[in-house]
Design a protein around this nucleic acid. Structure first.
Length: 143
DNA sequence: GCCAACGTTGGC
DNA sequence: GCCAACGTTGGC
């Protein structure tokens, strides 16, 4: 099953906020490359939440409640007929046992091809299966 | 359609 | 607070 990493600035919307709210619509993504990845999120996909700013670490796990859909606040289609500004509903699964810091990710060559490392400004990116396994180990998550 | 100028993000 | 990387805008 595919998994993804979503970045957020915790002072605006943190993983803890998601836990409190029980579910949230992940919106506000405007970057074209990030939107391409966002649109590929499907129901049940695992989502890793990364905090930028002072924390710079993967702090929690969430799940997509459905597939990406058109942002009702910003309707519009791409020339291909896809939602221009896609959003996705997510629910928290739980915090990681051990936050996985950006420094740790950058220091591990197995993450060299991860979007977080290659393009620091990308806010939505796929996490390939092999990397997800490493990430889960570092985060102290089972399976 | 090119590209310089400007704005934004996010790590340092 | 600075600046590199990248995206967007607007003049031509």
């Amino acid at each position: 099953m595919p998994s993804f990493l979503l970045k957020t600035e915790p002072s605006e919307f943190s993983f803890q906020d998601l836990v409190k709210k029980k579910r949230a619509t992940w919106d506000g993504v405007t970057n074209a490359a990030a939107l391409i990845h966002l649109r590929s999120i499907a129901k049940g996909d695992t989502i890793y939440i990364y905090h930028t700013g002072d924390e710079k670490a993967v702090v929690g796990v969430a799940r997509a409640l459905g597939g990406a859909f058109e942002d009702p606040k910003r309707p519009g289609k791409t020339p291909e007929g896809k939602p221009k500004f896609a959003v996705v509903d997510v629910a928290p699964v739980g915090p990681v046992a051990t936050p996985v810091t950006l420094a740790a990710i950058k220091g591990d060559p197995r993450f060299a091809e991860l979007g977080l490392v290659k393009q620091s400004r990308l806010s939505v990116m796929p996490v390939p299966g092999a990397m997800e396994k490493v990430l889960r180990e570092m985060a102290g998550l089972g399976g």
